[in-house]
């Protein structure tokens, strides 16, 4: 049986640039013709196998050495476009950020997927249930995009637009994501609900705060998987700020989070169920942070 006779990805032209400059040139040339970047490909290849995506050109950045940067300088962690999820299995930096990333990463898909899929690819793909997208939004990451027109910075809260839609232009390559290190006393908690080990989050929450004189300060509450994109919930943050942690306070913050979301509906969960889950994951994330 010839390859074209079976259910397989549609034909495409393959390009393997060796530098960012070459990659953005190719992207500039082919983006309007449905040319795409492939890094880990752990989301793109399944959609191609199902022929939901039929890119005419694939620009493979796995050979671009300058995108394998993972470094800390001036209290900023920089993650290049070819850094795999598995790079975070152990803390990459002796700061609460390293511990946070290594806790969250274990919830991403499965081990072989984490060995191949990339951090930046997950952001560019913008699945609402992406753990890294939630992390980027909650911690206020900065994304660096490059095209033939130059480089620009996008802040996480303007990066995600909707389900699998970002503010990247079609000819822009996400070359790097930057996180500021967290203050040393930062506590974090993450909780995800999914149907099976490694499955997509139906709802998840990431929280960070500090305790100053026993009171919650500098609090961030982010929820993902529930809406069309991850989002911080100021309503829940306001409930927590300035109070000592308690079961009652966390219940109130969880209720505020649930009231604030506009939940998606799909075959996994209707809106009412997702709203209930938002309360549960928010409360459990807060409990983990306080523990």
């Amino acid at each position: 049986m010839a390859i074209g006779d079976s259910v397989k990805p549609a034909a495409f032209q393959y390009h393997a640039p060796q530098s960012v400059e070459e990659a953005v040139q190719l992207l500039g040339m082919f983006a309007s013709d449905d040319g795409r970047i492939i890094a880990g490909g752990q989301s793109l290849i399944p959609t191609m196998a199902l022929r939901m995506a039929r890119p005419s050109h694939l620009i493979d950045i796995n050979g671009v050495g300058e995108l394998e940067k993972l470094s800390v300088s001036d209290s900023v962690l920089s993650i290049g476009a070819c850094i795999r999820h598995a790079a975070f299995h152990r803390p990459v930096v002796g700061n609460p950020l390293g511990g946070l990333l290594s806790f969250v990463v274990k919830h991403i898909a499965h081990y072989p997927i984490r060995m191949r899929g990339t951090f930046c690819g997950s952001l560019a793909h913008a699945d609402p249930s992406s753990e890294w997208a939630l992390t980027a939004v909650t911690l206020g990451a900065t994304m660096i995009a490059e095209s033939l027109r130059g480089r620009r910075e996008l802040h996480a809260d303007e990066f995600f637009v909707s389900i699998m839609a970002t503010n990247l232009a079609e000819d822009e390559l996400l070359v790097e994501t930057r996180f500021s290190l967290l203050t040393p006393g930062t506590r974090f908690g993450f909780y995800e609900f999914s149907r099976r080990a490694g499955d997509y989050a139906v709802a998840m929450a990431l929280v960070t705060f500090e305790l100053v004189g026993g009171l919650i300060a500098d609090v961030r509450v982010g929820v993902g998987g529930a809406e069309d994109r991850p989002r911080r919930l100021p309503e829940a943050e306001k409930v927590l700020t300035g109070h000592p942690p308690s079961a009652r306070l966390f219940e109130d913050a969880a209720a505020a989070a649930a009231a604030a979301v506009d939940p998606m509906e799909d075959q996994q969960a209707d809106a009412a169920y997702r709203r209930d889950l938002v309360a549960v994951v928010t409360r459990r994330a807060l409990e983990r942070a306080a523990a």
């Binding site: 393959y14 490909g41 752990q42 290849i45 399944p46 196998a49 199902l50 694939l58 499965h110 081990y111 072989p112 997927i113 060995m115 191949r116």
Partner: peptide, 22 residues
């Protein structure tokens, strides 16, 4: 499409799903 893992092989000693790589 990367769900079952039956096609897992080692690529440069790292487990990969060989249906999720060209």
């Amino acid at each position: 499409h990367g769900v079952c893992g039956a096609c897992t092989v080692l690529v440069d000693d790292v487990p990969m799903r060989s249906c999720l790589m060209f």
